[in-house]
Design a protein around this nucleic acid. Structure first.
Length: 687
DNA sequence: TGCTATGTTATTTTT
DNA sequence: TAACATAGCA
């Protein structure tokens, strides 16, 4: 027997052993999902399957890195031959490879949401579209069109003003991206998929390259991702997907629970393996989870069986207001720490990141070290984006969004007037904004701003050359061998000098705000450069192109060191895939879970709120707990500066005292409690 | 050009 | 309440 089949339960072994044909692994929370994936890959390698032909797809870099680490621990360096990547970096890889084949080697900018919004804002401005429309809602619709493979220009019949705006803007937006040599996150999945669907040769290149495909968190895939998988795995059908429909919490982002519910229909002959034993949580936690999720319709029917002991009962603690709730949570954490629990074993989870503030100040006051998952990402901070924009301009001068972003940052006398003159000219002459900058002198008729533009171009040209990015701008020179490219200098050195020349740090210190805030921002700039340093040290063939693609697709938590003693604060979404000895779920109230906006959706929200998804969110939260779970809620909470009465979440209606031990701190203590308090007091006085 | 005053609006956010 | 954006003013 292959050594990777030992120490697995029968279902896990079944999943690991099934290596050909479509396979659906329904992996309930805590049922050893990652174990199955890594063992399955190791087992395949044991059977002499070429690791280079194995592809593992995840949603986050973190998950991919974790999987790589576990696999390396099992099979050693052979693990590095397996492709473990996110959907988006896989898409970028395919896109680049296919473009290289077609001799289109120019750079690509990867637009994040901020870049997309800037692009849309510019378009709306240009066509004088009503400014009152919320751009995010339009973008959401464009994203939905893309993922449904609606072509730009296809009409979508709808009366909804947002649908109309999106239909109008979608073609213009897509044209704009093309002109910028840019792709957005959706394109990273859709464009390679379309290439594979339209060309048998292309499709077979990739399905031959990856003859075994595994997908993690399949319940979170959207329609385009399904099509991508179909293209790659269609020919050989060696597709194993792992997921749990009960943990689908990204429907609002286009994830289709349907994908996992209908896997057997999409891939006929698929085998299904259900992992139903939970190794994570004590019985009391698991029974509550089961009771909560059982009331959702449309799911793969399954009951998780506890392997562990019953444990202590789950508590519901009720306090009078938000303040006392936060205080109670922190005091409970303090007790747990005093009782020997490590900070790293404790998490407080909440529906909305807003909640972290109250907890943070309370934790700080108590001197308890913590970390906050989520929030604004490192790469979304202004100072980092600015410096990155310069690098993006070096790699891709067509990237108008980056050009506009920093053309006057730091201020160099190129105001909005100048920018719009140049922009109008480029539009009128059907050329790029960059070309307009090149001809600024004639367009503006000389003058101060023309000189400033020339200075800006001189600066970016100089750094572009230093980074060895000049080739696409001067192909002729290269062909004649007249200007041999100097070996590019090291990226971090150049970036540091760029930052110095721009005076970024001095500028940060000048902008209003506390000195600590300025310190943090300066530290982020330095952190960015340090990141380049370590990228250049570790990447096999470092390049500016690759580096930019990487940071565009990376989140802040990717290589964050995890302190063993830090209490974790996280949104329920951010906690998926994690586990903690002690979990506190805060704000178990109507309007908060389910969220107000799910109960009463805005009229510009794309689809009605999905209450079932909110229930799954609670389920995800509950199932993070290993040993102890405490739910909290309060009776009145400050909302938008006003105190609001709060009622308990509907998801815990009819859940009996055998599942949930109610602890209402707003009631006067009863006789028994009074006695124990007195006993405590006496003991303390005597001790 | 840059600052201040005022108004507006509050999810979740793997990439 | 607090953060952010925009408008209007100096």
């Amino acid at each position: 027997m292959s050594r990777w089949l030992k120490n697995l339960n029968p279902e896990q072994r079944e999943a690991v052993q099934t290596i050909t044909g479509p396979l659906l692994v329904l992996a309930g929370a805590g049922s050893g999902k990652t174990r199955v994936i890594t063992h399955r890959v190791a087992h395949m390698m044991e059977l002499s399957i070429d690791p280079q032909q194995i592809l593992g797809v995840t949603f986050t870099n973190k998950a991919a890195a974790e999987m790589r680490q576990r696999l390396t621990g099992m099979v050693g360096q052979g693990a590095s031959k397996v492709t473990l990547s996110t959907f988006h970096s896989l898409g970028l890889h395919i896109l680049r490879a296919e473009r290289a084949r077609r001799k289109r080697s120019g750079a690509l900018s990867v637009f994040d949401t901020g870049d997309q919004l800037s692009c849309l804002r510019e378009l709306c401005h240009r066509i004088h579209l009503e400014r009152s429309l919320d751009l995010g809602s339009i973008l959401q619709r464009i994203s939905a069109y893309k993922n449904a493979f609606v072509e730009p220009g296809d009409s979508v019949a709808s009366e909804d003003p947002y649908d109309e705006a999106a239909t109008l803007l979608y073609p213009a937006y897509q044209e704009q991206l093309q002109a910028y040599s840019a792709v957005d996150f959706d394109d990273l999945v859709c464009l390679p998929t379309r290439m594979m669907e339209q060309s048998d040769a292309c499709r077979h290149r990739w399905s031959d390259r990856f003859r075994h495909v595994l997908v993690d968190e399949y319940q979170d895939t959207n329609a385009a991702q399904l099509r991508m998988l179909r293209a790659i795995a269609g020919p050989h059908r060696n597709l194993c997907v792992v997921g749990d429909d009960d943990q689908s919490i990204y429907g609002w982002r286009g994830a289709e629970v349907r994908n996992i519910l209908r896997f057997a229909k999409d891939f006929p002959g698929a085998k299904t393996v259900t992992l139903g034993r939970n190794y994570r949580s004590v019985g009391s936690v698991l029974r509550l989870a089961g009771a909560v999720i059982a009331r959702n319709p449309e799911r793969h029917e399954k009951t998780l069986v506890a392997v562990r002991e019953e444990g202590t009962p789950v508590r519901m603690v009720v306090t009078s207001d938000g303040d006392s709730e936060a205080r109670w949570i922190v005091s409970h954490i303090r007790e747990a720490l005093a009782g020997g629990r490590r900070g790293g074993d404790i998490a407080v989870l909440y529906r909305s990141n807003l909640f972290s503030r109250e907890l943070e100040s309370e934790l700080r006051a108590e001197g308890i070290p913590y970390r906050v998952l989520g929030g604004t990402s490192f790469f979304e901070s202004k100072e980092v984006k600015d410096l990155v924009a310069y690098l993006r301009i070096c790699a891709n001068p067509a990237d108008e969004i980056s050009l506009r972003r920093v053309i006057n940052a730091p201020p160099r006398g190129i105001g909005p007037r100048t920018v719009s003159t140049l922009s109008d000219w480029s539009e009128k002459h059907q050329t790029s904004f960059y070309q307009a900058l090149r001809q600024a002198d004639e367009i503006l008729g000389g003058g101060r701003s023309a000189t400033a533009v020339a200075g800006f171009l001189e600066l970016t040209d100089r750094y572009r050359r230093r980074l060895g990015q000049g080739s696409q701008l001067a192909p002729a020179a290269r062909a004649h061998g007249r200007a041999p490219l100097r070996a590019p200098e090291r990226l971090p050195d150049v970036a540091r000098e760029l930052s110095d020349e721009l005076g970024l740090e001095a500028q940060i210190r000048q902008t209003p705000g506390t000195p600590q805030a300025a310190d943090r921002r300066v530290a982020r700039v330095r952190g960015l450069i340090d990141g380049m340093q370590s990228y250049c040290a570790h990447a096999p063939r470092p390049s500016l192109q690759e580096y930019l693609g990487r940071i565009a697709l990376s989140s802040n938590e990717d290589d964050e060191p995890v302190g063993r003693d830090l209490v974790t604060l996280s949104s329920l979404h951010g906690a998926k895939g994690l586990e903690f000895r002690l979990v506190l779920l805060a704000g178990m109230e109507e309007g908060y879970l389910p969220h107000e906006r799910t109960i009463n959706p805005h009229q510009n929200d794309m689809e009605g709120g999905d209450i079932a998804e909110e229930r799954r969110l609670l389920y995800v939260g509950i199932t993070r707990a290993m040993d102890e779970l405490v739910l909290t809620r309060c009776q009145e909470r400050m909302l938008r500066g006003r105190p609001q009465p709060r009622t308990p979440t509907r998801f815990l209606d009819d859940i009996g005292p055998e599942l949930l031990q109610l602890d209402d701190l707003t009631l006067p203590p009863d006789h028994e409690q009074m006695q124990s308090m007195l006993a405590d007091l006496i003991a303390r006085l005597e001790g």
